[in-house]
Simulated scan of single mutants.
Amino acid sequence: MASSGFEGYEKRLELVFSLPSWGGARAQHGLRLLPVGALREALEAVQCAVVSAAGNAAFDAYVLSESSLFVYPSRAILKTCGTTRLLRAVPVLLRAAGDELGLALRSCRYSRGSYLFPEAQPFPHADFADEVRYLDGALPSGLRFRRSSVMPPSRRHSGRHRWHVYAASASDDDVTGKDDEHADGTPHFTVDVCMTELDRTLARQFSLTPGDGRTSHAAGDAMTAASGLGDVISPRSLAFGYASYERGGAGASALASIDKAVAVFRPATVSVSVCYGSTGIEGTPQAVDAAWVWSAVADAVEPLGLACRSRAAEAFPGAMTVTYQTFTRTPAASLDMIDHNSQLA
């Protein structure tokens, strides 16, 4: 195996379950009733462990040795970095949710960027085709609407930065994030910002050095305070010039903090993925198209001296749309920009 450093690019898995319609504790708390042993077994399969945990009325959050886990009544979101085996958690969680709680899977979404050190990844993560085959075999046949894609389809304009997405749903028109929509029908947005080639002076203040006495979580707290975001930024992999930020929220509010995250590190290259439901309630302001998202992201990033290099948008099962954009400090990058609108016609 070739020599490599720490893999910063995270793998992200989101599993959404159908809750019972007859009420009771399972309908109210759902996956939050999973036994601790079931979660421990899933994380052992991934090869990471819980560092700390907290919860509120809406969800339970776990800080992991390799990122984080969020458990809501109807969904589980697992995000890990390094050489973790994220997809190995899928059969464990499906079995536990079914056997312990009687919950059926409604949809699945898996996404990741292009690894810094792909040769270090264990099976099935070294190759996206293997990840797709693994998920196809692990998911129940009831999720018959499935699609996988690498965005953009060509490396010509995006370089090594591409976004890998797999989605499966029991229905092609059931919005995966429907239970996250607001009362006015505005869809839920999930924003992933990946930054490489960080400004060394800015990044150095967050790097851990021998004898400085800080933990990685303390460094993360420092980043959060410096950004003014109120959301934790991952401190991992700064030594290899990588940082990431994720934010969820309604409409434009979810996109509003992108500029703050980028300003913390002043990276030379930024990629931004936005996932949102592409259908909603008739007569409400939820109608959002890729062009609006592209424009909002560009408005947040380009004033920081970055030019858009590529952009793509694709529709996925469950009435879900994913957009992806890359930005670099090359002034002429925008001249070569190309749009990829496949699957949206």
Rank of each mutant, 00 (worst) to 15 (best):
M1L: 09
M1H: 12
A2V: 05
G5E: 11
E7K: 03
R12F: 13
E14S: 12
E14Y: 07
V16W: 14
V16P: 00
F17C: 01
L19T: 02
S21E: 14
S21H: 12
G24M: 09
A25Y: 05
R26C: 03
R26K: 11
R26I: 12
G30P: 00
L33T: 03
L34M: 05
G37F: 01
A38S: 15
A45S: 09
V50K: 01
A54I: 08
G55K: 13
F59Y: 15
V63G: 07
S65T: 14
S68L: 09
P73C: 06
S74H: 15
R75L: 13
K79Q: 13
T83P: 01
T83Q: 12
T84K: 01
L87Q: 06
L87Y: 06
V92A: 14
L93D: 03
L94C: 12
A96N: 10
A97T: 07
G98E: 15
L105W: 09
Y115S: 10
L116M: 11
F117V: 11
E119P: 05
A120Y: 05
A120F: 05
A120P: 02
P124K: 07
A129R: 12
D136F: 10
R146K: 08
P153C: 00
R156Y: 12
R162V: 04
W163C: 04
H164C: 02
A168L: 01
A168H: 00
A170Q: 03
D174E: 14
V175H: 00
T176N: 05
T176H: 07
D180C: 11
D180V: 01
D180N: 13
E181G: 06
A183H: 12
P187F: 07
H188L: 14
H188I: 03
M195A: 07
M195D: 03
L202H: 04
Q205T: 07
Q205I: 04
T209A: 15
G211E: 04
S216T: 09
A218K: 07
D221G: 13
A222E: 15
M223R: 09
T224W: 02
G228K: 04
G230T: 03
S237R: 15
L238S: 05
A239S: 12
F240C: 10
G241M: 05
S244G: 15
R247E: 07
G251I: 04
A252S: 13
S253Y: 00
I258D: 02
D259T: 01
K260N: 13
A263H: 09
F265I: 04
P267W: 06
P267M: 10
Y276W: 15
T279P: 00
Q286E: 08
A290I: 01
A291K: 15
W294C: 01
S295T: 10
D299H: 04
L304W: 03
G305E: 06
L306M: 02
C308G: 01
R311K: 14
A319D: 05
T323D: 08
A333F: 11
L335N: 15
D336Q: 15
D339W: 07
Q343R: 14
Q343F: 13
